[in-house]
């Protein structure tokens, strides 16, 4: 139950972060395809391969923010 709640909260967080994307741009995610904001959100809701990848991108970014990725040394060492 706790795990289910955690996943639901995570999904809500990712969707909230995607909702700020503009609607007049598209994202190319390599072989996975090209998507609009609304399509990305739908994939996260479905929790499919594209949804999982975009979740990974968002979570990695939050982790790297904590590590100080905006600083040159940290960034170039990665």
């Amino acid at each position: 139950m706790a795990e289910q709640n955690k996943n639901k909260e995570l999904k809500e967080l990712i969707i909230a972060r995607l909702e700020v994307l503009p609607s007049d741009v598209s994202i190319s995610i390599g072989s996975l395809g090209n998507f609009t904001r609304d399509e990305l959100i739908a994939h996260v809701e479905k929790d499919d391969e594209v949804g999982k990848k975009i979740t990974e991108v968002e979570l990695e970014y939050l982790k790297l923010l904590k590590e100080g990725i905006f600083y040159e040394k940290t960034a170039l060492d990665h």
Binding site: V20, I27, V57, L64, F70
Partner: peptide
């Protein structure tokens, strides 16, 4: 590009997470 988007009042700050992804 990441620093420029992050430190200005750019409407494109949403791009930063994806630039970071490619960079690392």
């Amino acid at each position: 590009n990441i620093q420029q988007l992050s430190t200005t009042e750019s409407s494109e700050t949403y791009l930063v997470r994806f630039l970071v992804w490619d960079m690392v």
